[in-house]
Design a protein around this nucleic acid. Structure first.
Lengths: 139, 139
DNA sequence: TTAAATCATACTCATTAAGTGTAGATTTAA
DNA sequence: TTAAATCTACACTTAATGAGTATGATTTAA
């Protein structure tokens, strides 16, 4: 399950990509996307630290996309907020971690299955970018 | 992410399917699959209540699959233990629930995306059964 | 200098995850 | 019939995570 936090992150970014304004204060994003403002601040912070958005302080400051919407992939956003896509860590490509109780990883049926699940998810989330959610409303 | 509980459930069922014994006491499953026994009892209970396994009490009792391994699908096991596959409820087919903050569900980009993710996951988990994990060790 | 904004840290509060413990019921071989 | 091995039910614990809040500092344009 996606956390609310990740859902909010996606909603906020979609909103930012849809507006052609270069910069939006978090308050406006919060209102437009129906997200608790302070929580959104946390989220935007995390996205900023990971190079998804950038910010300008002071009055008339705000947040803006750090890259083109066509270069921001949805899988990466989810990874930043919720961690790896894979259902279990030993099936993650970006955050691999060995199972403690696994005797023979190469033969582990569960891992093979979950690798397939991970790849299926990645096939959707790492192929699509923010732009796809804006440009193609009927997708 | 899959919970430990769901992972244990899958490990236990795989072990049961692999052994050709008709019945296994939970203690043996716990040892073989490296699962805390009491926790496994809870899990087997839940699987029994959902028609995945059945049990026989008394000395020489134990648990056994309630259906053929080829009829037990992995998606269903995960749904029983962890709930719906879909990343958000409004994208679930088996446990649909409306988003509270959604103005126009049909146009919601996020939902369409997550429906695709759900279908990708289902494409793996609802197509494969326990038998696949036993019969096809190199899959 | 002040108002509006971001930035940083720390805190709360409820729920879930991951088990454990205790007590009792059922079965069946001996 | 009884002891051993099991299942069954329910309550409890302990830690982590989720979903936010609160407070205060810093920046910047006017």
């Amino acid at each position: 399950m996606l956390s609310m936090k990740a859902k909010y992150a996606l909603k906020a970014l979609i909103h930012m990509a849809q507006m052609d304004k270069p910069m939006l204060p978090s308050k406006q994003i919060a209102e437009a996307a129906d997200i608790p403002q302070k929580f959104l601040d946390n989220i935007l912070q995390e996205l900023r630290q990971n190079g998804i958005v950038d910010s300008k302080r002071g009055i008339f400051g705000g947040y803006f996309l750090a890259k083109k919407a066509s270069e921001i992939f949805l899988g990466d956003i989810i990874r930043i907020i919720d961690g790896p896509l894979a259902p279990i860590r030993c099936a993650s490509l970006t955050a691999y971690q060995k199972c403690e109780d696994c005797r023979d990883e190469a033969a582990c049926q569960l891992r093979h299955l979950m690798l397939d699940v991970r790849n299926a998810m990645s096939g959707v989330l790492d192929k699509r970018c923010l732009q796809d959610l804006v440009a193609n409303p009927s997708l």
